[in-house]
């Protein structure tokens, strides 16, 4: 059945007179949708902060590991955090963070849903107040965090808890989405081919379904806080 439907559909498409023979060829260079004239690190940082603020997200700029650690701990305390879901700390660019969180008596769950303890893991993850992650990159012009999955870098920490805290290095900020894609292209898009999921997250979860009234945190995190560590 499937094989024949496949052949049917493809056969019909092939038998048709090709539409749009005069479609423009693939551009040699694409226009970027958004524009960022000044691509110095400071300008990218400033633009990213402006954009994420306008999206009702928050950003914090810190110098060095100690300040980064203090900033994370201050935010966790402000959220009265007892439990977090988190990435493997190797992928969060703050030295000594795991120890500091443990020392504050906050429970760390790194959810693994492919084993026999799936139900228990999910139930525990559901009770976490904060998701803590790094990110692959951030784009300045749209205030976006870019993620791909991999060992130690799951999806649940970015989406399940009511608060998402992400720590990035300043050098991870690229001008725009097109620049991130260009980076993938130089590696033959391997980062996409070899990983199950990519996600752009642009500010906190929102809805306007009831009379177009903006409400944050409908299913995903209502608060997104980005800590940017200067290089």
């Amino acid at each position: 059945m499937t094989a024949s439907s496949r052949e049917n559909i493809l056969g019909k498409l092939r038998a048709a007179r090709r539409p749009f023979p005069d479609a423009p060829p693939r551009p040699l260079s694409y226009l970027t949708v958004t524009v960022q004239q000044d691509e110095t690190p400071e300008a990218l940082l400033a633009r990213f902060r402006t954009e994420i603020t306008s999206l009702k997200g928050e950003s914090f700029v810190v110098e060095g590991d100690e300040a980064a650690r203090d900033q994370v701990m201050a935010l966790l305390e402000a959220h009265q955090t007892r439990r977090i879901v988190a990435w493997d700390f190797a992928h969060i660019p703050v030295a000594g963070l795991e120890a500091a969180i443990k020392a504050a008596d906050i429970e760390i769950i790194q959810p693994e849903t492919h084993d026999e303890f799936r139900a228990e893991t999910l139930a525990a993850a559901e009770g976490a107040q904060v998701g803590l992650t790094g990110a692959d990159a951030a784009t300045a012009t749209t205030g976006t965090l870019c993620f791909t999955t991999g060992p130690g870098r799951g999806r649940i920490s970015t989406i399940l808890p009511p608060v998402h805290i992400a720590v990035i290095r300043q050098s991870q900020i690229v001008p725009h989405l097109e620049a991130w894609v260009a980076g993938l292209r130089t590696d033959g898009l391997d980062a996409i081919r070899q990983r199950a999921n990519f996600c752009f997250i642009t500010g906190p979860s929102r809805t306007g379904d009831i009379e177009m009234e903006l409400i944050l945190g409908v299913h995903g995190p209502g608060q997104v806080q980005v800590i940017i560590k200067r290089d």
């Binding site: 492919h114 012009t141 991999g150």
Partner: peptide
């Protein structure tokens, strides 16, 4: 569509979770 510069979650799937990926 909504007058946003980007939708909050742009989410892409390339097959099922790969070996070593913790969820999905």
């Amino acid at each position: 569509g909504t007058g946003q510069r980007l939708t909050v979650y742009v989410n892409g799937f390339t097959g099922p979770a790969r070996p070593g990926e913790p969820d999905g």
